[in-house]
Design a protein around this nucleic acid. Structure first.
Length: 887
RNA sequence: GGGCAAUUAGCUCAGCUGGUUAGAGCGUUCGGUUCACAUCCGAGAGGUCACAGGUUCAAGUCCUGUAUUGCCCACCA
């Protein structure tokens, strides 16, 4: 019989095991299966770059759930894929081009897009490979990309449908403009930060009068686009000026002075310059008052001809020069320091400019309603629950979604313009002739769609929508979505909206929001900071299971995990423990062969066997509960504790002699121990498999030589009938464990070397305990690292012995010649002191008449019981202490 | 300016619906080459549960306020 190799070396087996899973087709979901479906779609990673630790966390969580459900007998489908990530990818590729001294304009649209595709062809397989290394059980036969043919068709279909329904419109609006990326940004793509800036006070002369009105502004250069001044209609200071005309300094443009409630009299001077083309508020004011909108910016952030002599300058340079001129000509009153909230491009960091342009929008209010109702009615749940507030806040205040982007990488907007008659056609395919005039001069809209316009369809477009496919039928709606909180608005809420609009149902029932991975200093891991950890490096150094188990064990539910490379030792050590324990069981099997479907003969089980089965049954119940409630970390810890403490430290230690006993007389007992140890080990492998798929599969194969063809991945999830839970047994073994601990502690305190193997005498309070201990001397000896054990109700304390008290029993360890009286006295006194403090605490409680009057009877009873027991223990400690005097 | 979360041992975190002497891992101290595992085993030290009030017989756990940290949202020029 082959033994399990001594060293746990994950690199030896991980790749081969993954290949085998693939070859067996275990991960492929079958739409024609009769089993109940359980599906998850991956949050498609951006094709911008390879995966980081955050992805490892995100995907491990999904894999744990999917593997658990697969073992539970569901038809599972975990659909993988990658996102084209519009602006993000375009920017990355442009930066790459820049190193060759080229811009995208040097290449032209077609060649540039080809270049991005090339990037995608490179990164895509790398990302897939990483997911495989991590062990993700994705259905690779259904891998999708947001710009592949099918998904592009879905995008066009959705655009056309929404347009025809009146939910997509084209309009002139103030949008966020990135002068470096040369595109519109949605509000969600603009990052806001406080910056130290200035508030400039400028005076505007009134027409035909020698009076001035002072105006405060943070962006003085925008005055070149002013078309009015505004005051609050209730502001007594300025009422008299309403309807008059002011003169714009430098350009001498005539500005109406209007009244609008938007103006806050408390802020600045109470007079606001109105620049309709470059401020969203001013735009609104201009609409109300029918003001002219003068655009002073070019797309690249330089000023245009409307700026007069400042034309051609960058807006920030122009600001300096203009302020200088205002100062010289006496228009500048003062400059104050001011904390400004500045918007910057989330991709390139450039200062975003409010910019008047013609864009495509989605009307969001009607789409938001069912998405709000879904959460209110409980059809859609968040874990942790508090995220519903974030979700609802956004949906309830949702604004129309600007979906056009002036980029080259993305889905082209399916809108066609006739050069001859200006007719607009929105269609799935380019019309050959204009439906309006029959002419053939047709241009497609130059812009592409926001990247989220494809990802909001992800849960159903990936299954073939708009076609009615068997996959869609079987696996949609999906069950759970795993993501970080940053994209609750950008993605999660929009998926819910799209699903209700096009599928009439929510896309998933549970949203699990996990934290963001931070480094040991609590700083968010990011590429730019260089504090990231490469998952592949961790896999190389520690193994994929160590990576996964560590992430699961240390990631607090719903909070950010702090992770350093050392974190992965936890998982690695645990994997090693599991390996070693399996090896130990394996080497003691003799001729016994484990079968995957092995059953236990309950009748022949001995006490430790029945105990570990009781513990196993409880643990499985806990894990099922935790996983059902998306409490992954708690579930992982329960499995970890059971495997390490109950199974390795206590059970295996207790049965060691039985396992190793080769005498004929012990054959039966030894065989039962082998069977039970094997059975529980198999259960441990199964319960750990979702968390640590590789090592559990590897050990599975080593243990089940004859059935090496089977995979643990498709084994049924372990289930234990509740009758295996045995409270009395757990208490008895609890007594044994406490006894052993007391012996070990005494020996350690008194510097008795373990090799000494001292005898242990136990004076029990009742005969049952004594009988139980005498019946299980071997177990006690093994756990206590002691010599002979003898228990009775009238055990005499031998002279010169160490003593200890546990509930229900006193322990004496004869140590003739070894014991240091003073040491032992000190031990007992310390113990006594602790018990006295405890006693005092209980007494205080019981002396409180309010407590006695109000607390439930059972609580009072347990307190009284505690008092009694502690009192007895103190008495025994005192006696044992006294017995030390005179030596 | 709003909202959300967090604050428990040196570090990272458990502690569910209030009631056994507040736990784990790492680190630390001491002791161990017992033939599964030194990626291990055993023992110990280490906590006024951020602060201040309150509810209660009883609060780490519930309420209010404060402080600190982090995140999200926000068109006051």
């Amino acid at each position: 019989m082959a033994e399990i190799p001594k060293a746990y070396d994950p690199a030896q087996f991980e790749n081969a095991i993954y290949e085998e899973w693939l070859a067996k087709g275990i991960f492929v979901g079958d739409p024609s299966s009769k089993k109940k479906p359980f599906s998850v779609v991956i949050p498609p990673p951006n094709v911008t770059d390879v995966l980081h630790l955050g992805h490892a966390l995100n995907n491990t969580l999904q894999d744990v759930l999917i593997r658990w459900k697969r073992m539970q007998g569901f038809e599972t489908e975990w659909l993988p894929g990658v996102d084209h990530a519009g602006i993000a990818t375009q920017v990355v590729v442009e930066k790459n081009l820049a190193r060759e001294g080229l811009s995208r304009h040097d290449l032209g649209r077609e060649k540039f897009v080809a270049r991005v595709w090339k990037w995608k062809e490179e990164k895509f397989p790398q990302i897939i490979n990483q997911l495989r290394k991590i062990g993700c059980s994705c259905d690779w036969s259904r891998t999708r990309f947001t710009m592949d043919e099918g998904l592009s068709r879905a995008v066009t279909e959705v655009f056309v449908r929404l347009y025809n329904k009146g939910l997509i419109y084209r309009g002139e609006r103030i949008v966020n403009w990135c002068p470096d990326c040369l595109t519109t940004l949605s509000d969600d793509e603009v990052e806001r930060e406080e910056v130290d800036s200035f508030l400039y006070y400028i005076r505007y002369k009134l027409k035909g009068r020698d009076e001035y009105l002072a105006v405060a502004t943070t962006r003085p250069e925008t005055m070149l686009g002013d078309t009015a001044l505004a005051v609050n209609p209730e502001d007594e200071r300025y009422k008299q000026y309403i309807g008059q005309t002011a003169i714009l300094p430098i350009l001498d443009r005539q500005l109406r002075i209007i009244a609008d409630n938007y103006v806050d009299p408390q802020f600045g001077t109470g007079v606001v310059k109105i620049t309709p083309a470059h401020d969203p508020n001013d735009f609104e004011v201009a609409q109300r008052h029918n003001l002219e909108k003068i655009n002073i910016l070019n797309r690249d952030g330089t000023l245009n001809d409307n700026a007069g002599k400042y034309s051609g300058l960058d807006r920030l340079d122009a600001r300096q020069k203009l302020v200088e001129e205002l100062k010289q000509k006496g228009y500048l009153l003062k400059i104050e320091n001011y904390q400004l909230i500045s918007g910057t491009c989330y991709r390139c960091g450039a200062v975003v400019e409010p910019f008047l342009s013609l864009q495509w929008f989605v009307k969001m209010k009607p789409l938001a309603e069912p998405a709000i109702a879904a959460v209110r009615s409980g059809k859609l749940r968040f874990h942790p629950e508090h995220w519903v507030k974030t979700y609802l806040h956004w949906l309830e205040n949702v604004r129309d979604w600007c979906i056009s982007r002036q980029l080259w990488w993305g889905h082209r907007i399916p809108v066609y313009y006739c050069r001859d008659c200006n007719q607009i056609t929105v269609a799935g395919a380019r019309p050959s002739t204009c439906p309006g005039c029959g002419g053939g001069h047709i241009d497609q809209d130059e812009d592409v769609l926001d990247t989220w316009f494809s990802s909001w369809l992800w849960p159903f477009s990936t299954f073939g929508w708009p076609d009615k496919t068997p996959e869609l039928e079987k696996f949609f709606p999906t069950r759970a979505l795993f993501t970080a909180s940053e994209i609750i608005y950008l993605w999660v809420a929009r998926m819910v909206m799209a699903s209700y609009e096009f599928m009439g149902v929510e896309p998933f029932s549970d949203v699990y929001i996990h934290g963001t991975v931070r480094d040991a200093n609590g700083i968010k891991m990011s590429k730019s900071l260089g504090n990231g950890i490469d998952p592949l490096l961790i896999i190389k150094n520690y193994g994929a299971d160590a990576l996964r188990a560590s992430l699961m064990l240390v990631t607090p539910e719903g909070q950010d995990p702090s992770i350093s490379e050392k974190t992965f030792e936890i998982g690695r050590n645990f994997a090693n423990k599991l390996w070693s324990a399996s090896r130990f069981v394996r080497m003691n099997l003799g001729d016994y062969k484990i079968r995957a479907d092995m059953k236990l003969d309950d009748e022949s089980l001995e006490m430790p066997d029945r105990w570990i089965l009781s513990r196993l049954t409880r643990t499985l119940g806990l894990i099922n509960n935790y996983l059902s409630g998306f409490r992954f970390s708690t579930a992982a810890k329960a499995a970890y504790d059971f495997a390490w403490n109950d199974y390795c430290s206590n059970y295996l230690e207790m049965i060691k002699p039985r396992l190793a006993d080769k005498r004929d007389a012990a054959a039966g007992s030894a065989q039962v121990a082998r069977e039970c140890a094997s059975f529980v080990l198999l259960s441990i492998l199964k319960m750990l498999h979702p968390f640590m798929p590789f090592i559990t599969e590897a050990i599975w194969k080593l243990l089940l030589e004859d059935q090496a063809q089977s995979s643990i991945s498709t084994q049924p999830w372990p289930e234990m009938p509740l009758r295996y839970i045995n409270q009395q047994l757990e208490e008895d073994v609890g007594t044994i464990i406490r006894l052993a601990e007391a012996v070990r502690a005494a020996c350690s305190d008194l510097d008795v070397p373990p090799s000494k193997k001292p005898r242990v005498l136990v004076r029990c309070e009742n005969p049952d305990t004594a009988r139980m201990l005498n019946d299980h001397k071997e177990e006690v000896k093994n756990l206590a690292h002691s010599g002979e054990v003898l228990a009775s109700i009238e055990m005499a304390k031998p002279p010169l012995s160490a003593s200890a008290v546990i509930p229900g029993a006193e322990i004496f360890i004869p140590l003739e010649g070894l014991i240091d009286i003073e040491q032992e006295r000190a031990r007992l006194e310390k113990e006594l002191e602790q018990k006295r403090a405890y006693l005092e605490k209980i007494q205080k409680k019981l002396n409180n008449s309010d407590f006695m009057a109000n607390a439930p009877a059972e609580i009072i009873e347990t307190e009284k019981e505690k008092l009694k027991k502690t009192d007895q223990i103190i008495e025994k400690l005192n006696k044992n202490l006294e017995s030390l005097t005179g030596w």
